[in-house]
Design a protein around this nucleic acid. Structure first.
Lengths: 212, 212
DNA sequence: AATTGAAATATGGTATACCAGAACTGTCGA
DNA sequence: TCGACAGTTCTGGTATACCATATTTCAATT
């Protein structure tokens, strides 16, 4: 193969990782609806890779709970809409506050800076800007990643997948930004307890306002 | 291939699944020490399969947090006792206590009776009976199911899949049974708080005794 | 006409061959 | 004698060819 390698950065881009990220994104954005049968050959052709990275990517996504596959029957996107949102927010609050407390003693200055940048971007967005959801997701996942627990990350991905499109949170963004700042402060101080509490209140506050 | 196929069971034994199970077992039993470099070709030769299933198996185990791999530098066994295990129990404790509190106001008499029967069976098992793990799993899942949250159930399946029973918790079974009884009492009383607390202590207690 | 079975096709599973990158070793120079 | 550089070799990553199985469709028989 002699692909042009259009702008490949320094290193470490495994095609499997790339495909994992792409499929995950397609599931999250809804481009791949629930129950969609995934054809290895189609995906391989679409991504310009062979079937092998696609297969490994599917295995990973299966372990993450986003896909489910039977032998010789292929992989399908798992059904996302699960249960009443009220309880889903409770689950999210509990898990995220744990993630924050786990991340607090481990997070570094660079990540803190990233969080502040993301929060600042969110602050400057218009209330109805659709990019808010993506920034918000990124903000929270930066925290989870610094909890250094692959299991927690998998759970979070599954969780956010099922909340997909859901959290309405239309008019409380400025308040969310303020709460994000509180979380950042607690993380910077390495205060696991405060980070946990702030995160819990952040999410449950949103979920309460979420109710009609 | 024209292998003798000694004993082909009824169905669906994917070689990848087989290799996943074998490697996991080797890690758990300590046959593969922490930090051990895994060579794909060696494993493929040992298991009489090609490299492809071995690679996919490693991807899955990486997602489960048992292995960690860098590009072109191979996979290594993660430090099991220190690593994510401790945190995985924390995650489980947090999620299960939430599940218990959600189930407390909803659970019915029939489920309570089922829980008592399961706990009684566990009490009567010998300490080293391998059926304990299965009963224990069933016990806990009966509770989650009565939380009536499909999302929680999905997360729990992913969680238990990663923990996969665990070789640990060998000698504290009778104590676990007693704690199960406490959980049952709280559920019967519809006391969400007590159920949550009892569950949390149950799981963390196990995880602490787990340490060498 | 309906139902069942057999053949064909499509799809996932597996093996193997090949490529790229990293580690190791040996030699040459300071 | 020590260090650095280059060549070799080992190992993981990728592609492709092939096999086994599941699904589907069409036809024949009841």
């Amino acid at each position: 193969m002699s692909s042009p390698d259009s702008g490949q950065p320094v290193s470490f881009v495994s095609k499997t990782d790339m495909v994992v990220a792409l499929i995950r994104e397609m599931i999250i954005t809804g481009e791949l609806p629930e129950g969609k049968q995934l054809r290895q050959r189609d995906l391989a052709a679409r991504f310009q890779v062979s079937q092998t990275p696609v297969r490994e990517a599917m295995r990973r996504l299966e372990s993450e709970g986003l896909l489910v596959g039977d032998a010789h029957r292929g992989f399908t996107v798992v059904e996302a809409e699960l249960g009443p949102t009220e309880e889903n927010f409770l689950i999210r609050a509990v898990l995220e506050s744990l993630g924050a407390s786990m991340a607090a003693p481990k997070i570094n200055q660079e990540a803190i800076a990233t969080l502040e940048r993301l929060n600042e971007e969110m602050r400057q967005l218009a209330e109805d800007d659709p990019r808010y959801a993506e920034l918000n997701r990124e903000f929270h996942f930066v925290i989870y990643e610094h909890a250094h627990s692959p299991l927690l990350l998998s759970l979070m991905r599954l969780l956010w997948h099922s909340l997909r499109g859901g959290p309405k949170v239309a008019r409380t963004r400025q308040e969310s930004v303020a709460q994000h700042a509180k979380i950042i402060d607690a993380l910077r101080a390495g205060n696991a307890d405060a980070a946990s509490t702030a995160t819990y209140q952040h999410i449950m506050h949103v979920s309460h306002l979420d109710r009609p």
